[in-house]
Structure formats: structure tokens, C-alpha cells
Design a protein around this nucleic acid. Structure first.
Lengths: 345, 345
DNA sequence: TTGAAAGCGTTACCAA
DNA sequence: TTGGTAACGCTTTCAA
């Protein structure tokens, strides 16, 4: 941290380079008409003075901040992290920069974040889910910028959507359980509406049970979101105490599923012979664990990539590309060892 | 996205409320002298017009952007995510907002990020590690803002430091292995200098071997960082092919350790009887897996909390609090099932 | 407690 | 290809 009187501005650079500030401004952009020689002189002057471009002033003047606000429920979640990576990668090469926030699965925090972010004048905003408080919705609608809802297929979208039906995805697992000869199915997680994706999965699962005429009572308790491995383990223990003859359990995420699997190992419950386990999200752990865990891949990264496509077309748009309002992701069931077809017990 | 002619400014609010823009500005701040009644009128006018405060303009004018730039190697890493959470939590209540970036363990990307972030005029910058390119170091030193290096104890710090010695932490594991009767020790991960923390751990481990007079040849190959569960599993397989009599392996992170453990289960290698496994980072998986994995907790979240303390004292400082330059974290060995003392084979 | 004027550092716009 | 001028929307500073 060097002592300094005052950071140099374009004016300072201009003086040293013997040009006008306006020319310095042009020289800082990749494109723009500046003679090569002039630009060279300017960049040298900037280097010499230790000039650092001020995006704050640039944003105010041009009304383009280069920010894309992104709000996810949790920073510590491989799925959402993958979506963010997809966005980042897709935005590479543009001048757009992500302003990332996480709500910790709390509605009030999401409201606060949206308000805070909008004051930064982002050029687009990406949010997780399609269910919002009236206040959030109003802020987003009034923002005047493209809004992209992800990880869901809202009935009444605000603007753009990149997502899938969590309920339908969960139903895939019910079908798979039934197809592999299970009939006493349970679900762990998703009780709390604050994690709307989880809540939708759970309800989709229950709806699936209903379609197959199966009983819907077997539900583990996992407390406040987010669920984690430990909670998954604890919930499985409770579940088997209450309903010992359960022969298949789906967890709201792979983390819980892994916890459940570890708990089975500890309790001597054989997986998949006695109990089948299904997860959600295609986390690394479900692939590497032994036995490997059946899961549903929702292509988190692709959600981000498609989101970035929309943003690029809208903001850096090469003329009038037609951008469709809804990009639908197709979740994929990945069958692994924890749900191998059981032999008749 | 509603059509709009132009977003309302303080001037518009001022007109409606019948005051000057300056008074509106004051009314927007929590403190500041404004008569309660006046403020009420102003806030109503703002609400009515759908006014949204412009931080961009505010930042330019006041030269306080409210940004704290934070750069971590990866967004998809529970340890770094915890540090970010620690910072976020610690900064709650201030007007400071995190500008988060991740370098993907690439030096060039880190350089790019630092340059990009500095143009946003953050009020402080937090970086991971204490090893930087000369260009990075120069940018940081010239930035004129507090710089906080984390997750390391640099020999020649730029400014503030919150960290620990990765090498010393790794040595704890060597000692533990030796104490529990192991002598043919191996290490997986940390070959690539781009992940400096991992690199330091590996070298610390090797130094530890040397201190105990043990051979240092057993090293797994894990490719480019970051390591993950799959790479850990593969590396363990290779390792045991090359050195089948290895009786303990430390992995650069718990993720790799879990992969190694899963691989052992698959190959029928008994843990800990035949092979002890140690990880690093106290990830959830090491606690929940069966058997549970011995690890080293570096208190990632506390690193963030202490970082936030420094920033608060420096920026929101109640007068002249003395802020010490180095906050040292003490890593903690957590002994679990994968390294239980072996009976003589 | 409120207001007026002068920037903050950049870019849009028009002119040369 | 370059320059001059007037914003951009807010806050600092000083005065009332």
C-alpha cells in the first residue's frame, strides 16, 4: 500500500501523452478509432503513471456498468456453483462481470440482495427459482433490465426462463423405483418451502406415489434447508425406525443420499438389497461412492451456459437475434448401484 | 420488464417531496440530520415514483463504492465457500458488499481478475494465498487500499494476513501417521504449483518424512488442480500398484481422501487395517463417510471472520483501533476411523 | 435541519 | 482520427 496523493485520471494521462481526455478514453477500448501510434503513446503514459481505469465513472457516464447480477440460494453447493461457472464461461470475452450473491435459502435475504444489486445498475439479473415475494417480483419487473429465472419452470414467468420441472424430475425416480420392484417408498428432505426446488421435488415425488397408488406417509425430517450429509444420515435413521420395511428412499439431494448411504453402512442395512437409495443433482460424491448412487442430473452447468447465451444475445447482441423466452432443460436419470433391481427378498 | 421513459433520480423525488435533492440524499442514509417528517415524505415520494438509489453515482461522488473484492481459487470448494461466508457474515450490518471472483487455480486469470476488480474501486481486496506474479503484487501494492492475503503465511506479506502454514499443517499428519505405527507413507495431490496451498502441503509432508528419516518416493499423480474425488480414487489405485506395501496415505484434500477410501472399498483394501488415510480441510464428507476420515481442520470460516474483522476495523473503524497485521490460524488435527492405530499385521 | 454550487471521472454527442 | 462540451446522478462543502 503505497502512499499517494491522488490516483491519476484520464486527464493526467492525456496531459502526459499530449492528447485530449476523450482520446484517452477511446484508446482504452479495444475497438474505437485511434491511430495506432497515438494509442501506443497513451498506453505508455498510462503505464508510467500507474493509471487504473475507473469503471465506476464509466458506468455512470455510459449507463453501462458491465454487471450481471446473479443470485443463488447457496454459495456452498456444487450445483449452483456449476451454474455460475456456466454463466462465467459463457460470458467470457464480453465485458460483462458477474455480481454474485447468495440468499442462504432465506426469502428476506433474497429481497435484500435484489434491492442492493439493483442499485448497482446491473444490465441483467439472474435469479434462482420462479417463486418470489410480491415485493421481489415488483422490483424485478420495474428494473427495466432482462430478468432470467433459472432452475424452475414458473407458471407465470417474469421475463426469461432457463429451467426444468423439479416435480417431474422427482417423478422419474418414483417410476424407476417402481420399475425395479420397490413399493414402500420414502422421501427425505424438501419439507421447507424456503428451499422451493426441494419442496417441489418432494411434492412431485408424492404426486408420483399417488399416480402409482402407493402410500405417501413415509417422509423423513431434515430440518431447515439446506440439507446436508449429516442431516441425510440422521433422517434415514429416523425413517427406518418409524418404517423399518421401507424398501426405497429418494433424497432431495445427493448430499443427503450419501449421508443415508453411509448411515446404512453403519447400521448394516444392505444397499440396494434391503433398501434402494436415489439422490438428486449428480454431485461428484454419488459417482465416486461405493456403491455409487443413482441420481438425477439436471445439467446445472448447462443452465448457466444457456443463461449466458440469452444475456449475450440481449446485451452484446449481434443485431436482432430472436431470443426465445424459455429454455427448457431435460433432467436425466442416472442409474447406479444403489437402485439395482432387487432379487425377491 | 415494464416500459419506461427514464428511471427517476433524486431530483425527481425531490420535486415530488418538495425538497432539494440534497435533502433526499440525506434521507436515504440511516443516520444524517433530516426531520422525521421530511424523511417520511421523501420516502413516500420515492416509493411512489419507484425510485432506486444509484450506487454507481454515489460511489463516484463519495469515492466510496462499498465493494470489497474477494478472489478465491474456486467457487466450487467448500473450504473457500466457508471463508466467503465468514467474510459475508462478518460484514453484515456494514454497507460493504462482496465482489467475488474465482481464478480456477490459474495465475493469468488471477491477474485478469485483480485488474478488473481494481477498476471497480473496491475499498479493500482479499486474495487467497501469498504467492503472486510480480505484476499482481505491483497492482496490489499500488492500489492504495488494504490488501488481505489469506490461507497462507507469506514470508513477505503485502499488507494484512489471515492464515496458517500449509506445510506445518501437513507435517501434523506425518507425525500422526508415525505415532500410530505407520512407516511407509504416501501423498496424493499437490504436484502443481498453480495450487500453491496444495503444493505447500505436499512439500511440508515430504519435509516431515525427511525429519523422521522416511523415504519420500511414494507420490500419487493427480493431474491439474483442482483435485477431486475421482482423481483421488484413480491416484490411489496407481499408488497401490506401484507401491503395494504403502501403509498410510495423506491426500491434499478430503475430496481426494474420500475418493481414495471409496477406491479401497472397491478393491477390498481394508481401512485402516491395511492402509490409513488422512485428508485435509474438514469437509462434510470426511465426517459422514463410513469409516470417517481423519483430517485437518483449518477453520476456513474463521479465516473469513477474522478477515472481516480487519476490514471493519479499517473501513468502518471506530476511531483508531490498532489492527494487527497478521492473524494466525491454528490448524487442528481431527482423528477419525481411517487412521485408528493398527494392530501388528 | 435544509439548500446551492461545484465537482467525482468518464463518455455521448457533435464538430472539426 | 481527434477534440470540446455537456452531461451521468450523486455527495462534499459551505452557507443559511
Amino acid at each position: 500500500m503505497t502512499k499517494r496523493t491522488k490516483a491519476p485520471t484520464m486527464l493526467d494521462v492525456a496531459k502526459v501523452a499530449g492528447v485530449s481526455p476523450m482520446t484517452v478514453s477511446r484508446a482504452m477500448k479495444e475497438d474505437s478509432y485511434v491511430r495506432d501510434e497515438t494509442r501506443k503513446r497513451i498506453l505508455e503514459a498510462a503505464e508510467e503513471l500507474g493509471y487504473v481505469f475507473d469503471s465506476t465513472a464509466s458506468g455512470l457516464s455510459s449507463r453501462k456498468t458491465g454487471f450481471v447480477a446473479v443470485i443463488i440460494p447457496s454459495i456452498n453447493n456444487a450445483n449452483f456453483a456449476d451454474t455460475v461457472r456456466g454463466i462465467t464461461d459463457g460470458l467470457r470475452g464480453t465485458n460483462l462481470q458477474i455480481l454474485l450473491g447468495y440468499s442462504d435459502y432465506q426469502i428476506e435475504e433474497e429481497e435484500r440482495l435484489i434491492a442492493q444489486f439493483l442499485s448497482r445498475r446491473p444490465e441483467a439479473i439472474v435469479i434462482t427459482g420462479g417463486t418470489h415475494t410480491p415485493r421481489c417480483r415488483k422490483m424485478l419487473e420495474n428494473s427495466g433490465i432482462p430478468v432470467i429465472e433459472t432452475w424452475d419452470l414458473p407458471v407465470d414467468p417474469i421475463d426469461y426462463v432457463v429451467g426444468f420441472s423439479n416435480a417431474d424430475a422427482a417423478k422419474m425416480m418414483v417410476k424407476h423405483f417402481v420399475d425395479s420392484g420397490r413399493s414402500r417408498l420414502a422421501f427425505i428432505g424438501g419439507e421447507d418451502e424456503n428451499d422451493r426446488r426441494g419442496y417441489d421435488r418432494r411434492n412431485g415425488f408424492l404426486a408420483g406415489l399417488s399416480e402409482y397408488g402407493l402410500e405417501q406417509t413415509r417422509q423423513g425430517d431434515s430440518g431447515r434447508p439446506p440439507i446436508n450429509m449429516r442431516k441425510g444420515a440422521d433422517a434415514l435413521k429416523d425413517l427406518l425406525e418409524k418404517w423399518p420395511d421401507t424398501d426405497a428412499v429418494m433424497c432431495v439431494s445427493d448430499l443427503a443420499a450419501f449421508g443415508a448411504l453411509a448411515q446404512c453402512a453403519k447400521m448394516g442395512v444392505e444397499v440396494p438389497r434391503q433398501l434402494a437409495i436415489g439422490g438428486f443433482g449428480a454431485y461428484d460424491v454419488s459417482d465416486v461412492s461405493h456403491p455409487a448412487i443413482t441420481t438425477i442430473d439436471v445439467h446445472s452447468r448447462k443452465i448457466g451456459a444457456l443463461t449466458a447465451d440469452i444475456i449475450r444475445n440481449l446485451l452484446a447482441g449481434d443485431s436482432e437475434v430472436e431470443v426465445s423466452k424459455v429454455a427448457r432443460i431435460v433432467p436425466e436419470l442416472i442409474i447406479r448401484e444403489t437402485t439395482l433391481i432387487s432379487e425377491p427378498a
